[in-house]
Computed example of a mutant assay.
Amino acid sequence: MPLKAAVLKIVSKQYAPSSFIETTFGRYDLAFKTEEEGRPVLLFIGQKNERGDIVGERYTRRLLLDGNNKIIKDHWENKGKATIQVRSAA
């Protein structure tokens, strides 16, 4: 399933560099990792289960940049079903 425009709007923003961010969108839970420039490059979208894991789909981002670090191509690719542990360490 391709990403909807509203989700693309969330993952097109800049965030803290090299971080893991959790958020929600509608009935979905989102978790994504950012690269050294703060652009999301790995996305998990699904629903949290009773253990706090997100069960759903995994997407990776393909970015093609020019010499000035300007984005030439930007594509999210669905890598299939995935589960990620996002429980906080207590």
Rank of each mutant, 00 (worst) to 15 (best):
E57Y: 15
N78F: 15
A5I: 11
R27L: 08
R51W: 11
D66L: 03
I10Q: 00
R39K: 11
A6E: 13
L65S: 13
P40A: 03
K81S: 02
Y15R: 12
I10S: 10
F25S: 12
S12H: 13
E22K: 11
D66A: 09
Y28N: 09
F44S: 12
T23R: 13
G56H: 01
R58H: 15
D29N: 15
K81F: 11
V55Q: 02
R87N: 12
V7R: 12
A16Y: 09
Q14I: 14
Q14R: 14
E50H: 14
E22I: 10
G80S: 04
T60K: 13
S19I: 06
K13Y: 04
G38P: 05
K70V: 06
A90K: 11
R51I: 03
V7L: 14
L3M: 09
G80R: 04
A16G: 10
K33V: 00
F44N: 02
D74Y: 02
L64N: 04
H75M: 06
T34R: 06
K81M: 04
D53I: 01
G38Y: 05
N49V: 02
Y15D: 05
Q47V: 13
F25K: 10
A82S: 15
R39H: 02
H75P: 11
V11H: 13
W76P: 01
T23C: 14
L30V: 13
F32D: 03
L3Y: 08
Q47W: 06
R39D: 08
S19Y: 08
T60S: 07
Q47S: 08
